[in-house]
């Protein structure tokens, strides 16, 4: 088994869930639980594909996917923040809407091909033997996703705005009493999460597969949601979770292809087993790190 090819495959396989999960983490940090990640991803996948086919530019496709994801998430935002609908039910509804909407939009794009996103061959770094091929010859979205994780970490940890966002998520009553616009801050977080999910979906339809097929994200959004919990709402944890999950998936396929004698069932189960195992360890430690106001509706009068 060639470790270089393996790492390359893992990075490609992990990028969609990494993008979706880092966005959802910011949403949850602001105290909103949006279960519609799958719906926003699939919408991003179809819009990204359609725009990339229409314009011939994969980068415009990604931009369009982010806008589409954000637009869809703002529907959720308006419903939950202004009309105070139940976040869990609205999020699930968002997933169903996204799946249906994407099937409708995508029916004309079946069997078409999208322009491919070229590899970014970074000079000098890309020429390093082994490491160069492994780490420095990916497409631009892989680096963008990593940069995004770093940016989110820095934003939440080092900036005043990040502190306010966390305050809103921890205790929206207090944040409101301090004069922060809880609803507006949350709407911004929701839109960011939607845009990230859209990008993740577009990565599936433009790079990983690359084609449009109905239902193609096949549950990646739910895995992204699990990774946020797995990561205890920490940016670095999201990165580790996404790469671990992508890694185990790719490694089990490679082990099968290499003709290992390990039973397939255990290999296929392993990503989920590891996720459960980590969740058990986290809860045994007693530190969850969940934002205090997660999933609770806020209204200034209450």
């Amino acid at each position: 088994m060639d470790p270089v090819l393996l790492v390359v495959s893992i990075m490609v396989s992990a990028t969609p869930i990494l993008l979706a999960a880092i966005g959802e983490m910011v949403v949850e940090k602001s105290g909103v639980l949006n279960l519609g990640v799958e719906g926003m991803m699939i919408t991003g996948a179809v819009m990204g594909f359609a725009i990339a086919v229409g314009t011939g530019s994969p980068l415009l496709g990604f931009a369009g996917a982010a806008v589409a994801g954000a637009a869809l998430s703002l529907c959720f935002g308006v419903l939950t923040q202004y009309l105070l609908s139940n976040q869990v039910a609205t999020g699930l509804g968002l997933t169903l809407v996204g799946l249906g909407l994407s099937a409708l939009i995508g029916s004309n794009y079946e069997g078409q091909r999208a322009p491919s996103l070229g590899r970014l061959d970074i000079p000098l770094l890309g020429d390093i033997p082994v490491l160069g091929r492994m780490l420095f010859s990916h497409d631009v979205m892989v680096y963008a996703s990593l940069a995004l994780v770093a940016a989110v970490w820095a934003f939440l940890r080092l900036t005043r705005a990040g502190l306010i966002l966390r305050a809103v998520g921890e205790d929206h009553e207090s944040a409101h009493a301090l004069g922060y616009k809880v609803v507006r801050i949350r709407l911004a977080a929701i839109a960011f999460g939607g845009a990230c999910a859209g990008l993740g979906g577009a990565y599936v339809s433009l790079v990983r597969v690359p084609q449009w097929t109905e239902g193609m994200t096949a549950g990646a959004g739910w895995i992204a949601l699990a990774i946020v919990v797995f990561a205890s709402w920490r940016a670095l944890g999201v990165l580790i979770g996404a790469y671990l999950f992508g890694g185990v998936t790719v490694i089990q396929l490679n082990l099968q292809a290499a003709g290992t004698t390990l039973p397939v069932e255990i290999l296929s189960m392993s990503p989920y087993l590891i996720t459960i195992l980590v969740l058990v360890i986290i809860s045994a430690r007693g530190v969850h790190g969940a934002p205090g106001s997660l999933g609770r509706s806020f209204h200034a009068s209450s």
């Binding site: 490609v12 597969v209 084609q211 096949a218 790719v250 396929l253």
Partner: peptide, 11 residues
Amino acid sequence: DPAKEADATQA
């Protein structure tokens, strides 16, 4: 599952 099928092909 297109994504999984693509990953398997790559593997």
